[in-house]
Design a protein around this nucleic acid. Structure first.
Lengths: 233, 233
DNA sequence: GCAAAAGTGTTTAACATACACCCATGA
DNA sequence: TCATGGGTGTATGTTAAACACTTTTGC
């Protein structure tokens, strides 16, 4: 190693994931009991290993703690204030993850004390995790307005009213259902199925599926409906 | 320190800044000769010190290498692939910076071999710095479409035609000057001065200034004119 | 037959786009 | 007086927003 490198300090590197889920009514995030005395709620986190990339590490930690694989993961930001972790200086890379709650329920690990919390009713969080959550919500709002990532939070098959409820929850507002369905269908990203949802309403709503082909390539600007940019928690 | 912490690997932590400037005609980025043999062009970079936050470190490094203070700095992303730096595993936090070229010219340091490069004519860059630059350009385009950060690249006093040229450069397109000035003035973020630019055109264009008050608070969606989202370098 | 949610169309206003002429000045 | 860039207005099309009634079906 070169001299210039040898002289440098090294830092502990952690990864913390803000995991969003949607239960059909409201947005949730998944927290675990952690911290020195295991009394504080915390984001799902872990340490970077020497042989993995940051994205790989975030995915591995998610898998270890939740059993979930193939999850939408996106780097959010790095948090590195000198005193953010009082035990030792640690740099944390925050990721945000979108999971399908139904998938998680089937894999829920007994090992960890994990619980879904409503965004509007979060407990006190470890370190600077509350800042991470705030930022993640902003990012989710932005992202969902530009890219069709909302689908990542819904089951394979979903109805338009379900999708609308999701967007209502993300933006903490209420969209007009006529305008909503026109807009969402005009993207041509949804395939209407021949099957109706049973049990929830009398009439039953048609199920839709994402056109995976088109979804993959849809980097294009998408909805453009941040209805009220100041919608606050 | 707690056992769990002691067992962990530690990593070198670098900061690299993509510094954008605008010379009145085209967008530039500032590069230095660096690398093992000082033959490769590289972003402005340095190491995190134990007592500073990431943002402080980025600002300090910028000051040391360019003499520039009070620069618009924003965290871009973290790059941490295991082999991104062949000398030793290093995590790098990339920042992007917007500077007023005129300010820099007056403070240019003789010590460093720094040069402005056109975005369209970049040399081969060190490590993964080219990826960082690509990402920074995307972020700049997005940011400039949502927030009035363009002003950070211009002198205190500037004309509407100058501003239009800047946006032309950012989006690699040509805006209609009538629509452009209507749109930009409708934000009410500009104050028209009683002074005209001399020497460049016969008629002379009025100088404008940013209304700092309003600029500070303008988190609101702003221009919304990404003209052609596929405008590529 | 009625309650509850699903589904659908139209009108209006706001905004984006396209486009062309006159103005001021220095040489 | 003319060449150069600066400054402005209008008409048209597109997109967003507001709004209310009919449909289906399980009970």
């Amino acid at each position: 190693m070169i001299d210039q490198y040898k002289k440098q300090h090294a830092y502990l590197l952690a990864l913390d994931s803000i995991i969003f889920g949607f239960d059909g009514e409201s947005l949730k995030i998944l927290l675990v009991k952690r911290g020195v005395e295991e009394t504080t709620w915390s984001l799902m986190g872990g340490w970077l290993q020497p042989d993995e990339s940051l994205g790989q590490a975030a995915a591995r930690i998610l898998l270890e703690l939740t059993g979930l694989n193939n999850v939408y993961l996106e780097q959010l930001s790095v948090f590195g204030d000198p005193d953010r972790d009082p035990i030792a200086r640690t740099i944390s890379v925050a990721y945000f993850a979108l999971v399908k709650v139904a998938d998680y329920a089937s894999k829920i690990s007994e090992t960890y004390q994990a619980r879904w919390f409503s965004l509007y009713d979060l407990p006190t969080l470890l370190f600077d995790h509350a800042d991470m959550v705030d930022l993640a919500i902003k990012r989710l709002r932005y992202k969902a307005s530009q890219h069709p990532i909302g689908f990542e939070l819904l089951p394979e098959k979903f109805t338009i009213p379900q999708l609308k409820k999701l967007y209502d929850a993300i933006y903490n507002t209420e969209f007009d259902k006529r305008n909503f369905s026109r807009k969402i269908l005009s993207t041509n990203l949804l395939i209407k199925l021949d099957e109706k949802q049973k049990g929830f309403s009398r009439k039953g709503a048609y199920f839709y599926q994402v056109d995976t082909q088109k979804y993959q390539q849809s980097t294009h600007s998408f909805l453009n409906f941040i209805p009220n940019p100041d919608a606050v928690l």
